[in-house]
Write a protein that binds this DNA or RNA. Structure first.
Lengths: 402, 402
DNA sequence: CAACTTCGATCACTTATTGAACTAAGAAGG
DNA sequence: CCTTCTTAGTTCAATAAGTGATCGAAGTTG
């Protein structure tokens, strides 16, 4: 079993570096790879042959000429392997099949809530995975599973720890269960961590080493990228923002508003027997409901206050805000205003506070990226960072020769 | 100039790994190094010869036998090279000469305040460095200079940025100035960052990947270690805790106390014409002054409140508290109590909040470690972490063979 | 002092990587 | 259309880095 694994493409550092650049920059040629990785053309040529042979990478046509022979574009394979990415959110489950090139091949949303307990949810997760695999058979084999869960996860073991819902969710061996069921490597992490990973890799944080992702869901959580790496914390619980007010608070307050009669638009929406959601408040505010607007404004300011402390403490280059309430422009503007007003001038000098551009799939995308990092051994930033830090010759003098 | 540099010991990854372990574990034998680094005895033998030849490492006697031939103990050289470490604190300047083995060879404290402007302070720094070098001539050559400054520093360029004192301190090219003056590599960083580096390397954070250092000085600042690496932030201003109350606040409040007559012990101390200091408040509290005790208690609680948010957010394995007020047991106890009461159960489950064991020198020590990391190319955690992550054979399967 | 154990050095051999030469494929210009 | 120039990708000999096996040195134990 061992010599087989050692022969893998990603087992050598050079092929990992090549793979990382191919992943990062779609359509590069072998010549580009040589300059980008700093490796010789010879080794690039050999490794690419390996990678193409193993099905990880494929040639996808020719690039435009720059005055000579045209380079052959290389990309991660779209047809010779898939990963499953799943998001276990508080109120639903989302299962996705991705190609190695981060292409979404299949997707399904299952309306099952974490409150219904782990047995049911994980069962649904497995069944949806089966369906996804059946629907994408042409692209097989399945090579890995990445899962994001709303709540703390001990990453090393892939077990949930004390989620703020159903007590049965504590210490569920999600990772081992999936690995055994499907016979491929699985990784499980907190949902917000995976959103941060997605933003770092393909979102707003592509060229940034320190990044904060704020997710306004039922609760407000943060994902941290430090030195280009995900910061999970000692117990994997980093990013918890207990004090802050998410959709749960919003809905609670909105219910009070309806009762007081101060919000005609919300009252109208609920007359049809529907439960209030964060989305309804955002809609009402957009359509001119003053009370809803005020409510959102207060929530945004509260988030901005906490965020301003974190910005001083963590000094990110960029803050990405995701979640339903953040879809409104005013909400983000209010957060910006609060942070810029309260944080240190130095920390906000070049700080950008932006909405996520990855949309609802960002957690699933992050899960796919996590497991792809794992199975390809090609963690992006590790290699691009090495390149940026310059060649060996720039090192400093040392004793003995002074 | 280039082929000369390329021939350096640290230019190869293997010698960097060896050097890192030698630094970490004093008195290891070549055989130990082979098992610890995972390299073969052959390569260890060769590289150690190089390192001893270049003066970085020296043989320091024989280890005890474990049933056969005794190993020769290897340590970083105590006599064939020094680094200068300096701390530019708000109220004084401390210049230290260290051997490669982190041994303090010489130390001087210059009572010059940052408020007197950069020209004067940096001049004093250079003069004290000259004196230190003259006093330790037997251990030369000088191989590098590390400096810690109380205030934000842009690490890449080694320039100060908007310190909260004298405006002249902005954009001072401290690093370049020292490099030119002494002809050796220099590195400049924020004081608290360096304390964190020291704690991570030789202090309480030795075996820990995520660590928070809280320094209670004139202001309260934090140093962050994430994944074993120093987190500096986008502008190098990470760790600022604007809201929190340090000695400056303490002195201010203590002055009010004296005025109100509520603190007989403090009043007595100031009758001799002395200015109030944080130390005086700590002393008074220890000697039973109720008002001082209350004041410290309130400050500790306030710090604890901020810290509890940060603990949830950053989820460190350990928090090290340094600074004069933290010398009192009650102060630390109050911080603990507040944090354990307010933070999430998960984040505090295994959290330790401890006083620094490195004392007043921790910033200087950190400065020495920073520059030694640089000139030896042997960043500790990078190599030990790689070793801990296991051999290649444990990797996961990959497509094409499924 | 003979048998055993561990340490450190040496050397032939394997493996990874480079540099230079070479072939392939296109562009530009007569 | 053919020559010349430029860039892309392959091949191969040379080199650098590291390993494993072997051996002498320096201990311990009975």
């Amino acid at each position: 079993m061992d010599e087989d694994l050692d022969a893998l493409p990603a087992s050598s550092p050079s092929s990992a570096a090549i793979l990382a650049v191919v992943r990062h920059t779609g359509g590069v040629s072998r010549a580009d790879l040589a300059t980008l990785t700093g490796l010789s053309k010879a080794i690039v040529s050999e490794r690419v042959r390996w990678l193409v042979g193993s099905g990880l990478v494929e040639e996808t046509g020719a690039n435009a000429s720059t005055g000579g022979r045209r380079g052959t574009a290389l990309s991660l394979s779209r047809s010779r392997g898939v990963v499953v990415a799943a998001e276990v959110a508080m109120t639903h489950l989302q299962v996705t099949v991705f190609s190695f090139a981060h292409e979404l091949l299949w997707e399904e949303r299952v309306p099952v809530s974490m409150w219904q307990g782990p047995e049911l949810v994980l069962d649904e997760l497995e069944r949806a995975t089966e369906r996804g695999l059946a629907a994408t058979e042409a692209h097989h084999p399945l090579c890995g599973i990445g899962v994001g869960i709303a709540g703390p996860v001990e990453f090393e073991t892939g077990r949930t720890i004390h989620p703020p819902v159903h007590p049965d969710w504590h210490d569920q061996p999600v990772r081992d269960r999936l690995q055994q069921r499907f016979g491929v490597p699985a990784r499980v992490d907190n949902e917000v961590n995976l959103m941060a990973l997605a933003e770092r890799t393909v979102g707003h944080g592509r060229n940034v080493r320190d990044l904060l992702v704020i997710k306004v869901g039922s609760f407000v959580g943060a994902g941290l990228i430090s030195n280009g790496q995900l910061h999970r914390g000692a117990q994997g619980s980093a990013g918890s923002l207990v004090t802050s007010q998410g959709s749960a608070y919003l809905v609670e307050q909105a219910t009070l508003l309806v009762g007081s009669g101060r919000s005609p638009l919300l009252a109208e929406a609920t007359r049809e027997g529907q439960e209030i959601t964060a989305r309804m408040v955002v809609d009402a505010a957009r359509r001119g409901d003053e009370a809803s607007r005020e409510l959102l404004d207060k929530a945004a300011e509260s988030i901005g206050q906490v965020l301003s402390v974190l910005v001083d403490f963590f000094n990110p280059a960029i803050v990405v805000v995701a979640g339903r309430p953040a879809d409104g422009n005013d909400f983000l503007a209010r957060i910006r205003e609060t942070v810029y007003g309260r944080s240190l001038a130095l920390a906000t000098r070049d700080l950008r506070i932006v909405p996520s551009e990855l949309g609802d799939e960002s957690a699933s995308l992050g899960a796919a990226i996590m497991i792809l990092d794992e199975i390809t051994g090609a963690d992006l930033l590790t290699h691009t960072a090495r390149r940026l830090s310059g060649p060996r010759g720039t090192q400093q003098p040392v004793p003995g020769r002074h």
